[in-house]
Design a binder for these strands. Structure first.
Lengths: 158, 158
DNA sequence: CAAAATTCAATTGCGTGCAAATTAATTTTG
DNA sequence: CAAAATTAATTTGCACGCAATTGAATTTTG
């Protein structure tokens, strides 16, 4: 009883404290990253999720909305208006797939491609701001990937 | 063809990959936590930020809006409407501080206090879903706190 | 003490995120 | 082959999250 079944008893009042919660630590770190990225991305008129879409397209150009959503974990309800703004800003072009009119193919424009080289600068600035080495960053990254996989495994999706 | 910034050469193309970015790992983990919390909080009609406010109030009842904002890292622009919804749902009451009419004191209602004991259940479910021990969770938490501090130190605020 | 500066909460505007409903196109099937 | 089911993207509605503005109360200061 004392070991497994009744672990409610083993959870101290203190566990309710924000500072003791892993989730809050992740939540805060995400906000901190967002704030760190903001001034860097503002120069290009981009938001962080928009930047993520460009990162994905720099790796693999010409993806459908659905494919982009799988890459960065967003659904079409978020992506549709976001992509419309990226198109209005001139970074991407959207075109119905002639082979399957349900799909929309998103591709980089010249302007979007040109931004890629500048993105390295953002990466370096963020690396500095995070204050950890590539090795450290890699470790945390892997730990978080594992945590994310574990959390997502709870409801079907992977 | 010589590069202006020589250190750019040391950053491989691969670094632009989403999977290699610490920030994206944090961003994804935050979303994963949010999705894990959602069904648990839906039963109480709460969102995660609303739950954070209650967690803070369970630790220390009767705080001003500003104080709550410092606890969970949100400004009044986010908190004002959020607290109004928490009040409409009957979990908290808001009252102008008679001693300083600029401030609004937020305190738990009976209903809000009663929820505290159930919150342990949520905590336990999330702990299970995260699939890591208290020790592991503690390590990741500390690493992320440090990362957050480092990122936030870049622009004055602490 | 009165004007100026500061502080606090609320409001406005914009961009996510996500669920649910909608529309159009394709695939399945009876 | 036509009806039904499925799929992809868009749209709608709601709740953050943040910057900037507003308005009221308090503090500073000249």
């Amino acid at each position: 009883m004392a070991n497994k079944a009744a672990h409610i008893d083993t959870i101290p009042e203190e566990a309710l404290s924000l500072g003791k919660q892993l989730c809050f630590a992740v939540y805060s770190a995400a906000h901190a990253f967002n704030r760190a990225y903001k001034p860097l991305l503002d120069r290009f008129g981009l938001t962080y999720p928009q930047y993520l879409v460009l990162l994905a397209l720099w790796q693999q150009d010409e993806m459908t909305v659905k494919r982009i959503g799988e890459e960065i974990g967003l659904d079409s309800g978020t992506l549709s208006p976001l992509l419309k703004r990226l198109e209005a800003a001139g970074f991407v072009a959207r075109q119905r797939d002639p082979g399957d009119e349900r799909q929309v193919i998103v591709r980089l424009t010249e302007k979007g491609r040109d931004l890629k080289s500048e993105a390295f600068g953002i990466l370096i600035d963020i690396g500095k701001a995070s204050g950890c080495s590539l090795e450290e960053a890699g470790e945390i990254r892997e730990t978080l990937h594992q945590l994310t996989r574990q959390l997502n495994s709870g409801h079907g999706a992977d």
